[in-house]
Design a binder for these strands. Sequence first.
DNA 1: ACCTGAACACCGTTCAAGT
DNA 2: ACCTGAACACCGTTCAAGT
Lengths: 206, 206
Amino acid sequence: MIPFVKGIGDQQMNGAHTAERTMRADARRNRTRILDAARELFAQEHPDVQIGDVAKRAGVGVGTVYRHFPDKHALMGALVRERFELFNARLRAAVADEETAALDALTDALRANADSIAEDAATRFAFMRGGERAFAHAADEAEEFLRLSRILVERAQRTGALRKDFDAEDIPMIMCGVCATIDTHKPGWSWHRHLELVISGMRARV
Amino acid sequence: MIPFVKGIGDQQMNGAHTAERTMRADARRNRTRILDAARELFAQEHPDVQIGDVAKRAGVGVGTVYRHFPDKHALMGALVRERFELFNARLRAAVADEETAALDALTDALRANADSIAEDAATRFAFMRGGERAFAHAADEAEEFLRLSRILVERAQRTGALRKDFDAEDIPMIMCGVCATIDTHKPGWSWHRHLELVISGMRARV
DNA sequence: ACCTGAACACCGTTCAAGT
DNA sequence: ACCTGAACACCGTTCAAGT
């Protein structure tokens, strides 16, 4: 398990590193507790986490949550950013990996990402409502994600292993679809099978 | 307080036809209006339709909506049932079709279904939370859907065109994933491409 | 038998008062 | 500077009163 670079930086958008340093000790501690509580709650089965519960678990008042995060989406956005940093680390490793076949490196990253998404309803929500707010709080990371995806996609296409009409944007789109399957705890469904089906569809026909 | 078990199973669960007949004329008219209003609203862009808006558009009070449908999910369930009846009609046609190759018949039905789902946020919701309430109101239809899917899947597998490890349950699972993509209006995404990717993954490797 | 809408419950969000 | 929780807004749902 790769530890998160949690809390680093800003509360929500970008470049608040300075604020982190100037925060009062108790505020910094509360912020960490809120994020920890949110992480734990969003890792639980149902995705409908309430701010009041986050506050209670963090041992702070609701107002404190709202002091650190302007709204629920911003709080979720912080979790989403952490995940994206993890995703990007994996993609960078895949890009650096010259040994593994390009398509395999890409699909392995996809599988690993799906695994960690299965533990975070906040990120699933972001993928399933990508155009909206929760995603916006990880805009930079999402862009980097796309940039790295493009490199891997292009490389895998040059190999001839990946379909020519595959688009780098299809990577998050696929993850969006798998998120939906993960959220739906339906007997007889398996998001693993769903993902493998899509991965199989990525392969170029011979 | 329940004076007479209102709505007894028929308008929402199964076999509404009998009650339909005994309903007072104005009630029957209101019920139709509510469903029409709901259909129109759920066909609109954002899936967060409010009961109050449905009531307003139908020209009735909120209480009337709740008299006909015990809760929001039951109302959505009624729309979902309609869609499933459409899906099942298509699948039955595909089963009856001896001309077309089995896999093509199946995938064509999938494409047609996705098209109609794109116009109904209620059904998308049901697919994306399949284990829950909205789906339950179309349980019979969903079961029939699965039964028909199994026939087509088995037939397409006998042909050798469909992967052997494909499960009939994967059909609704795929639709669930596509629903998520449809809901996410993200520039650069195309649920058509998503669907074709998955369909491509269904094909057996030679 | 059915309709209506004010009232209630729940949860996201705000803000006056506190340290 | 930051914290707190009562109060407010919004939307799903109920129910007393009406026809």
